[in-house]
């Protein structure tokens, strides 16, 4: 399953500080959308509103709409827990649960939600998720070893396996490769191409090559100065953004003339 996301007139606050202003964005299903922009412009902040994890920070709030296949995530009566089951997230730093084994980490979403699952179904889910995250061959002989004992790149792929094991419709990734070596990065980029067949993927990255390599659409965020809100400057096909963007600001940023 894969769903469309639409942000409409989205303003994002930390307390009284307006961090991101008036974002309108239409993210297609079965595609990879990259968010780029300078540090502090609100990419992470925006991404975190797409699964309502933004609001766990005290004082953080949002106005405007985010539609998931037409349903407003921020509508009255919407349970953020249910939203997060459909919109999974992979974080910048790998964060496997340190008390759990590799296998338990993959099953965490199922187990923590108290879903009953037969042993053979669980084994199948572990295998398919780990295969999906390109990690199976490396860990199949030590599924009961602690997840925190893997290398950074393996941990990140474990986190991806954990995310896809709950079968979300959308996967959000905040700089998933920033702590990884080029080989693990390529493994994760390949993986994104695979995942895109089934999921809507939104990724934040500081790596222009990565954005141009993997994504179908690219959104460029910028900020006028510290303390000012970030804006979505331009959002278009990746090919267009990287060859002839409409805005001079975008052109400056991607050609390195920023700042």
């Amino acid at each position: 399953m894969s769903k469309r996301i639409e942000a409409i007139g989205l303003n994002i606050y930390y307390g009284s500080f307006l961090a991101v202003e008036n974002v309108n964005m239409d993210i297609k299903p079965r595609s990879i959308t990259a968010l780029i922009g300078p540090s502090g412009c609100g990419k992470s902040t925006f991404l975190r509103t797409l699964n309502r994890i933004h609001e766990i920070i005290p004082g953080a709030r949002v106005d405007g709409k985010v539609l998931l296949d037409g349903d407003d995530l921020y509508g009255p009566g919407v349970d953020p827990v249910l939203v997060r089951r459909q919109v999974g997230m992979v974080f910048q730093r790998p964060n496997p649960f340190p008390t759990m084994s590799i296998k338990e980490n993959v099953l965490a979403g199922v187990k923590l939600n108290n879903k009953r699952i037969s042993r053979s179904d669980a084994d199948d889910l572990v295998e398919s998720s780990l295969r999906g995250a390109n990690l199976w061959n490396e860990v199949k002989d030590r599924l009961d070893a602690p997840g925190a004992g893997l290398s950074g790149g393996q941990q990140q792929r474990l986190c991806i396996a954990r995310t896809i094991a709950v079968k979300p419709d959308v996967v959000l990734m905040d700089e998933p490769c920033s702590a990884l070596d080029p080989i693990s990065t390529l493994a994760i980029e390949d993986l994104m191409q695979e995942l895109k067949k089934e999921y809507t993927i939104v990724i934040v990255t500081h790596n222009m090559q990565q954005a141009s390599r993997v994504s179908d659409m690219t959104g460029f965020f910028n900020i006028a100065g510290t303390g000012k809100p970030g804006h979505l400057i331009e959002y278009a096909d990746t090919a267009k953004i990287f060859s002839n963007p409409d805005k001079a600001e975008t052109e400056d940023y991607i050609s390195g003339r920023f700042g």
């Binding site: 994890i53 249910l82 997060r84 997230m89 964060n95 496997p96 649960f97 939600n113 954990r162």
Partner: peptide, 18 residues
């Protein structure tokens, strides 16, 4: 670490279980 709480929330786990 807060990251573990966020990891759990991102899997759709309710707060009290987290």
């Amino acid at each position: 670490p807060n990251e573990l709480r966020e990891a759990s929330y991102a899997l759709g786990v309710p707060k009290w279980v987290t």
